[in-house]
Nucleic acid binder design. Structure first.
Lengths: 251, 251
DNA sequence: CGTCACCGTTCTCCGGACCAGAACACTTAT
DNA sequence: ATAAGTGTTCTGGTCCGGAGAACGGTGACG
């Protein structure tokens, strides 16, 4: 699905935006040397982006503007799974007091659509829009477990199986074993794989035709989640929330 | 501040994205005729955007992807006023049971950074990232009232004073009278200007140097907000929330 | 206070990239 | 079969993006 005739100028613009996002506000010269472009080229791109609200000038530095939030927010708002799941994720967070999340798959990566914090929630540095490898989170595993095997292989090939921590899944075989277990149980678990001491439990959201639309999770410190909770009351709540979403989507 | 040497190719890409956002998912031919471009040009741009995650192909249609949410979310997350105000807006919504909002000014427009819903909150079609004319909302008026007069004039010149409803502010003189009243009171009110039957109350967030950083509001149906509330207990709560944010920002 | 070094911005001109238009592959309807 | 629609590919001519140099401003330094 690669572009046969990529628009190079557009790619330069996008590279600039991403560089600006990663480095935070910075100046023309710095961007030019980082991206091997001339100063005038960088300047032309930045002023063009600024004219349309995608970039702002703060003194002598440029930074990415909130226009991206407008486009992205609009995109999210128009997704049915978000509209339906949003209140459920919020009440899941309120009921458990922990951190609840909603993730969807896009281009083989997981994208957080939202997070809701209960009264005792841990504060992870996730945010709406953040991308993550699917195999590294309970949310992602809940989704992968409900994709066709061929699709999972495509995703592995495209994005690899990077190990975030020593506990992470590192091989195709290991992943497929885990996914099989997820299918049997109906939910996915992350016990300290992503972050030491953090336990997550995620359930898939499936359409009536069996296609997976996303996943809902609760993340909590291990100190508050006993082994019994992890396979007893907690899955019940998360699965129930996911089920409500499924029913509302399928009418 | 216009671009002296705009990158036309980039502008075409951005026009495509915005058209795609407004019309929702659609095909190459339709976009091409809407934007007076050749089909091949549209196709090249779309595949380029797709390659980088900014656009997706759904069957034969294209739609904007969640990459915009990633960039926009990152940008929002890195704003100090958001980080500090977010918990306050949430507790304001929880305490009042109504809809609470956070708005900042960017390029003369108001941008909603977040909204939080209390238990009885009305459901407006605002969303994080949405842009609005500053003079049409209580939030915007709270901000305008704390900008230098020259800046307000620039904004009027750039964006006009479009009247959303017959009650809207329509002239410069009228606006400045209202802003003077806002400065005296310390908070701004919208009594059905934006939407019949909806009352909003907003307070500015100012830095220690007096610069306005944004505004916090509560929106509620008129049926639940008496005239006494509107000038008594409600302003107290909103002003208090704004004040907490100011203290936390200025350490 | 002159000097220097750095910044962002402007300018010009040439090489290369964008894109109109035509052809292609495919689906759907008649 | 035929036709009319779609998205995609291809090529050549034209126009525009961008390297590099020059400009204007600002802050540091002796």
């Amino acid at each position: 699905m690669d572009a046969k005739h990529p628009v190079r100028t557009t790619e330069k613009t996008l590279a600039l935006v991403e560089e600006l996002m990663e480095k935070g506000p910075c100046g023309v010269t710095e961007l030019a040397s980082d991206l091997d472009m001339g100063k005038s080229a960088v300047h032309n791109h930045l002023t063009t982006l600024q004219k349309h609200g995608y970039v702002l000038k703060d003194g002598d530095d440029y930074r990415v503007g909130l226009k991206f939030l407008e486009v992205g927010g609009h995109s999210r708002k128009s997704m049915e799974v978000y509209q339906v799941a949003e209140p459920e994720v919020k009440s899941l967070a309120a009921d458990t007091g922990e951190l609840a999340n909603l993730l969807v798959e896009e281009q083989g990566m997981g994208v957080y659509l939202m997070r809701a914090k209960g009264d005792d929630a841990v504060d992870l540095d996730t945010y709406a829009g953040l991308r993550t490898n699917l195999h590294t989170t309970a949310l992602g595993k809940a989704i992968l477990a409900n994709l066709p095997e061929s699709r999972v292989d495509e995703i592995i090939e495209r994005h690899g199986l990077e190990q975030k921590t020593p506990k992470s899944i590192g091989t195709r075989q290991e992943l497929f074993q885990v996914l099989e277990a997820v299918r049997e149980r109906g939910y996915a678990i992350d016990d300290g794989e992503r972050l030491e001491g953090l336990r997550c439990l995620a359930a898939p959201i499936k359409s009536s035709s069996g296609e997976v639309l996303g996943a809902i999770s609760v993340s909590a410190p291990a100190s508050r989640v006993s082994d019994e909770d992890l396979h007893g009351s907690l899955p019940e709540r998360v699965l129930s929330a996911a089920n409500v979403v499924e029913l509302n989507i399928n009418y």
